[in-house]
Design a protein around this nucleic acid. Sequence first.
DNA 1: TAGCAAGTTGACCTGTGGGTCATTTTCTGG
DNA 2: CCAGAAAATGACCCACAGGTCAACTTGCTA
Lengths: 200, 200
Amino acid sequence: MTRPVRPLRADAARNRELLLAAAEDEFVERGVSASVADIARRAGVAKGTVFRHFATKEELIAAIVGGHLAALTAVARRLLDSADPGAALLEFLTVAADTRQQHDLTFLQTVSDGDSTVIEIRDQLYASIGALVDRARAAGAIRPDITGMDVVLLVCAPVHVAGNLPDPAPDLWRRYLAIIFDGLRPEGASPLPRPAPSWP
Amino acid sequence: MTRPVRPLRADAARNRELLLAAAEDEFVERGVSASVADIARRAGVAKGTVFRHFATKEELIAAIVGGHLAALTAVARRLLDSADPGAALLEFLTVAADTRQQHDLTFLQTVSDGDSTVIEIRDQLYASIGALVDRARAAGAIRPDITGMDVVLLVCAPVHVAGNLPDPAPDLWRRYLAIIFDGLRPEGASPLPRPAPSWP
DNA sequence: TAGCAAGTTGACCTGTGGGTCATTTTCTGG
DNA sequence: CCAGAAAATGACCCACAGGTCAACTTGCTA
């Protein structure tokens, strides 16, 4: 899959990391419209260097998104060993919201969702979430009509909800995660109108 | 407040409406980055005309957002007369999600939230929602620790959640509205971690 | 340490978007 | 029906963004 490409030269590797970090900061501050020139300046590098590492701005965005998805996947896999499946699912949602709170890159998702590498990593993440949900359901921690895809879609909701406020308290999302998770619990569940969406 | 400005000439009034409609369509299709030139073309009007009606692109966006907020406010006020406060709140959330589903303009909100007219309309909407929530809480239809601001923040969540899917079924949001509304119900509610946010 | 491929630089190109304005067209009150 | 005000037009301006490339610099390897 990864053909034997010789490793990056030391300075190039360093610049690549600097660029990813600078780009992430810049995107958080300015949104998708952050300019490549500004990103380069922030990384202390010329604009041409950006395009040596990432052919287009979209490719740069995909690299950032891919990194985050991979990190989340690792968290989900680790939690699959947990003794309490319900707590594990809640913990995963908490960690996911927490990282997303620190730097909201949701808006980058749309740009990068055509990238094949991103799709691959994303599918692994979805599979892990699916496993977490299956275990939680089997343990009776969530209602039977909730699927993995439901949870996938709901992951970003708490942060998004809190983000509607101009200057939200840094952990306000916990309040909305609690409300939404209560909606996933079996107690007092009302029947759901539409069937869960299938795999995308 | 509104000084006696003579009414628009007939053609100008017509063009204004054409522009608002065209702009809304264009924004839905292309996002915020839809260009003024394209909007003008779609309205069958020259670019200069756009700027005669709206000094800047932001002002045009504010006009669209303001219109939608006003329509929602009217819905909320009408529902305040309903006999069943719990059903009224659910109905409001349903209507809100439904209109937002038909044309998602959430991304315009950020642009327009500095506009004084928009702020005024928005505050009226928030007040109406607050009243709906108070009535529902008093009737025991939702848990006691939910505030009006909570619901304000949660309004867009169902559509947003369904929107994470590339091509969501047109009323998938109903599923997530049901889940979230279950989280608002008193049955099986777990204590909420953070206090509700105050007025913005 | 020398040679060269890999990496960097920054001036430059091109497209595009918001916004302006002198000129022309159109509406309307008298 | 006409005069003048209101509105529409579209060529034009400028800023800025993504992307290119020939010339230059630097890390690596033999």
